[in-house]
């Protein structure tokens, strides 16, 4: 597959997306795309606008610019409508329903399935196969789980929603390296099964191993877009971060 995909439209195509907090332009017009089945990573220093970018794509904040999903203009849709299309985000900080059980969190992930029991069951089986820990903990309150388990739950809940594009905002944040690597490995596995992934990550080495393409974001703009294997060391990245 080449970067221009000919007749098949991009999975998601972001065109001149910008957002600001009051007068501060946190996101200058940004272009970005993810192909079907592609793993794309966004790297960038703290305050680069990575979270803002994901929140703008999922319409949690007001923004300007165009976003297309499989060729369809989705700029006018709101957050829950995007979720119905399969654009699912795991928020920075996980966004779990802390007082609810693991089971209820997962069930809410499948809200869009409606009352089709079989489909909900099928997704539970899929998620529990991926994260057996969640099955063991299914009656525990989400907030009382360890950080790693909470992140598994956040990813598991997103999978319950049947994503076509999974966006994740620093899923490794605050996790021990081994636990973080486990989560990212799972993302790699999901991607090999055809799921399009847009990952925001600060832990560059981990993220680069999985990604096919990388965007480097700094001060609200895309500084570089390059194939992941072209980045040999963290040193290479630094030159994009500051200038």
């Amino acid at each position: 597959m080449t970067s221009t995909s000919g007749t098949t439209p991009h999975l998601i195509e972001v065109d001149g997306l910008s957002a600001s907090y009051g007068r501060v332009a946190a996101l200058k017009p940004v272009d970005l795309r993810v192909e079907e089945g592609e793993f794309v990573t966004i790297l960038g220093p703290n305050g680069a606008g990575k979270t803002t970018l994901l929140r703008a794509i999922s319409r949690l904040i007001a923004c300007n610019g165009q976003v297309k999903f499989k060729g369809q203009d989705i700029s006018k849709l709101n957050t829950h409508q995007l979720a119905k299309l399969g654009i699912i985000m795991v928020q920075e900080g996980r966004g779990l329903f802390g007082e609810m059980s693991v089971y209820e969190n997962l069930l809410l992930g499948a809200y869009g399935v409606g009352n089709q029991r079989d489909e909900v069951e099928r997704r539970f089986t899929q998620v529990f196969t991926l994260f057996p820990r969640l099955r063991e903990r299914s009656s525990q309150a989400a907030s009382s789980m360890s950080g790693g388990e909470q992140q598994m739950l956040a990813v598991g809940r997103a999978l319950m929603a049947g994503p076509k594009l999974l966006m994740l905002d620093e899923p490794s944040l605050g996790l021990a390296p081994k636990v973080a690597a486990g989560i990212l490995d799972t993302l790699g596995e999901l991607n090999r099964n055809g799921l399009g992934i847009l990952l925001v990550e600060q832990k560059a080495p981990l993220a680069l191993k999985l990604a096919r393409r990388v965007y480097v974001l700094s001060s609200g703009s895309v500084r570089a877009e390059l194939p992941a294997q072209e980045i040999k060391s963290h040193h290479d990245l630094a030159k994009f971060y500051f200038h």
């Binding site: 999922s58 949690l60 709101n78 957050t79 829950h80 979720a83 119905k84 699912i88 985000m89 928020q91 966004g95 779990l96 329903f97 802390g98 007082e99 609810m100 209820e104 069930l107 809410l108 992930g109 809200y111 869009g112 409606g114 009352n115 809940r157 997103a158 929603a161």
Partner: peptide, 24 residues
């Protein structure tokens, strides 16, 4: 119930609820 649970979800985290397709 599914809808009742969704209402509770909104009370705990509206953004997360919307991100899962719950019409807030």
């Amino acid at each position: 119930t599914r809808v009742g649970r969704a209402l509770r979800a909104c009370s705990q985290n509206r953004e997360a609820a919307a991100l899962l397709g719950i019409p807030v």
